[in-house]
């Protein structure tokens, strides 16, 4: 068993490009679900607005990259308004039903053959990410080394002895932008949730009728939360599309949204750093389990008949699901959550 490899992989992924997508999308959900109590089950569709907004604008319409970003953000706002206006005055579960349906509609429209000339149908779109990588300060022919950090043909290696981290120049650019976005979102949200504005959101989560009786326009606040969370979701869509250099409709399924929820609940809802910690932990555990099992099969520690390498993926998700159930039983507030707050609901 190559434990060095297993832990290096797990840690590399714990702060890598994929984790960033989930962290950003879950930050958006945290605004909606964590702080305001809005059950948005269509965060994948908000991400799709960002991803497809960008890809369609650049590829199908032939417009510049930044136009694509603007279109993606506008599409997310439009979707938030479209879903919010009819449902946010109603009981909380209506938003849940409508968002889950809307997400499915978006996915099916994207993969339908009617517009496949523009959207590529189920194959999706590629060829929109070059302007983004052209902005990258990292080049693929850089060669240098300094102490335990080295760069070889654009591939960065941080060798800490017991583990090492390796990223390509494209990964590095995605990570630079992704982590910068997370920093900006957390600073802005940190200021907002500790303001009277954030206090009204938490009040709405607790009891919106009570907040209404105190003279607050609850509908307007819920709409603001839905739009802000949706914009952050669209940003996750940009990072997703750019890191893969393509968009595909079936990646924006409801599962995608549920993993955002897993990440949020794992880290701790209504905690500023909850989504980031949750995403890091989720991808660390996912890679740790898959690599360990793969290594064990290769080293023939697991008998050949018991588990094959194609079964590793499903088994890992089964184990993560089991872990999630145990977490909800023994630590339902998540890693960063406040036990005292949670106890109040039991009464």
């Amino acid at each position: 068993m190559d434990w060095h490899f297993v832990f290096s992989q797990a840690l590399t992924q714990a702060i890598g490009p994929t984790m960033l997508i989930y962290a950003i999308a879950a930050i958006g959900l945290n605004v909606q679900f964590g702080y305001t109590g809005l059950l948005n089950f269509g965060q994948a569709a908000f991400a799709a607005m960002g991803a497809y907004g960008l890809a369609l604008t650049v590829v199908a319409a032939g417009l510049p990259f930044w136009w694509g970003i603007a279109v993606g953000l506008l599409a997310a706002v439009a979707m938030a308004l479209l879903l919010g206006i009819p449902t946010l005055r109603l009981r909380a579960d209506y938003l849940a039903i409508v968002t889950i349906a809307a997400a499915e509609i978006v996915r099916r429209l994207a993969r339908s053959t009617v517009w496949s000339e523009h959207t590529g149908g189920s194959d999706g779109i590629r060829g929109f990410s070059e302007p983004f990588f052209a902005m990258s300060p990292y080049s693929d022919d850089a060669n240098w080394s300094f102490a335990f950090v080295s760069m070889e043909n654009g591939r960065l290696t941080v060798d800490l002895g017991i583990v090492d981290f390796q990223y390509s120049d494209r990964d590095l650019w995605i990570m630079t932008v992704g982590w910068a976005l997370i920093a900006v979102f957390l600073v802005v949200l940190g200021l907002l949730v500790h303001s009277p504005w954030g206090r009204v959101l938490k009040g709405i989560r607790e009891d919106e009728e009570a907040v209404r009786s105190l003279g607050k326009n609850v509908f307007a606040y819920k709409m603001q939360a839905l739009v802000i969370g949706g914009l952050i979701g669209a940003t996750a869509g940009f990072v997703f599309a750019l890191s893969r250099a393509n968009v595909q409709p079936d990646t924006f399924s409801t599962d995608f949204t549920f993993y955002f929820y897993v990440v949020l609940i794992l880290g701790g809802a209504a905690r500023l750093f909850g989504p980031v910690l949750g995403a890091a932990l989720f991808w660390f555990l996912y890679n740790l389990l898959s690599q360990t099992l793969n290594q064990a099969i290769r080293a023939e520690l697991i008998p050949a008949g018991a588990l094959s390498s194609i079964q590793v993926g499903p088994l890992v998700f089964f184990l993560l699901g089991l872990g999630m159930v145990l977490l909800l039983i023994y630590r339902p507030q998540g890693i960063l959550g406040n036990r005292r707050e949670l106890m109040l609901d039991v009464r």
Binding site: P196, W197, R199, K202, G203, R205, E206, D207, L214, D345
Partner: peptide, 20 residues
């Protein structure tokens, strides 16, 4: 508002808050 402090329950009710 159960998962908010007593003081926050009071403060949320203050009218015309700019910070809202």
């Amino acid at each position: 508002l159960t998962r908010m402090t007593v003081l926050d329950n009071m403060l949320i009710a203050a009218p015309d808050q700019l910070g809202e």
